[in-house]
């Protein structure tokens, strides 16, 4: 088989699910004769996206708001999660004290705290950033904690024979061993982060993709709502893909380690 056919086949396999989904969507809209104000057909949505991004450009400000706010909250949540996950994984006493508290807070659905966050932080972007940080915190925290704990015992023994301090052991052994696990947590966290952001935008109604969906749906403008939804999906997928690639680069040795 020639390489051209192989590449084409690879692309086909990746595109196929998307094609199937769009076909199903089209079939449902067509088959049930759904009116466009309830559920638009794929082509209508595509036209709306094209207009919103290219000819009119009215979707950009909302997307930019959502992206920047989510990134801000995500950065905050991730940094805190890696820091706390690391500290708790490296220290038994702190683990016993604080891990149950983290679990307790985790068991409350973050979305339920949204109105309270708004109350505490005020009616602006700060609230969204805090909610985003809260929603994406846990997967990154768990990924970090498990990864740091999973450092190979023989490496930890080596560091002990070299009289390495806890901090240096963490820096040169536990943290790099945990890299793959941390990024895996961050991949999950990115999806959660978008959820947090959209929920806050629903509540505040001051712009962003979430606001756009809420507002358009209320105005029976399903085309815009679905367009915003699709773009959110793209944002989620793009973030996941970037992290996936970052992970492969970061833990280049993974899957090919030949430990004696």
């Amino acid at each position: 088989m020639s390489t051209v056919i192989q590449v084409l086949r690879g692309t086909a396999v990746r595109v196929l699910p998307l094609v199937l989904l769009v076909a199903l969507w089209w079939a449902v809209v067509r088959g049930f004769a759904l009116p466009s104000r309830l559920m638009p057909a794929p082509l209508e949505v595509w036209d709306r996206i094209y207009a919103g991004l290219v000819t009119q450009g009215d979707l950009w400000p909302h997307l930019a708001t959502t992206l920047m706010t989510t990134l801000g909250g995500y950065a905050l949540g991730t940094v805190l999660a890696i820091a706390l996950g690391s500290v708790l994984a490296m220290n038994r006493v702190l683990e016993l004290t604080f891990y149950p508290i983290v679990l307790l807070i985790q068991s409350v659905p973050k979305v339920a705290i949204a109105p309270l966050v708004l109350l505490w932080m005020g009616f602006d972007t700060r609230s969204t950033i805090v909610l985003v940080a809260l929603t994406c915190f846990f997967p990154v925290f768990v990924g970090t904690f498990i990864g740091v704990r999973a450092a190979p015992p023989v490496l930890l023994d080596l560091f002990r024979t070299l009289n390495a301090s806890t901090f240096k052991t963490y820096l040169h052994c536990n943290l790099p061993s945990a890299a793959g696990s941390i990024v895996a947590g961050m991949q999950v966290g990115w999806g959660f982060a978008l959820v947090g952001c959209v929920v806050m935008e629903f509540i505040m109604g001051m712009g962003g993709a979430g606001y756009l969906i809420d507002n358009s749906a209320n105005a029976l403008d399903a085309v815009t709502a679905v367009a915003a939804m699709v773009l959110l999906g793209v944002m989620g997928f793009a973030g996941g893909s970037i992290l996936q690639r970052a992970r492969a680069r970061l833990v280049f040795w993974e899957g090919q380690v030949r430990h004696g």
Binding site: V154, L162, K168, H172, C173, A179, H259, G260
Partner: peptide
Amino acid sequence: FQQSALLPWKTSLENVLLPIRLT
């Protein structure tokens, strides 16, 4: 050790230098 206990993210040279770096 029984297993080589090398750090997979460091080159041979960096692995050999690890005890120096840690001290």
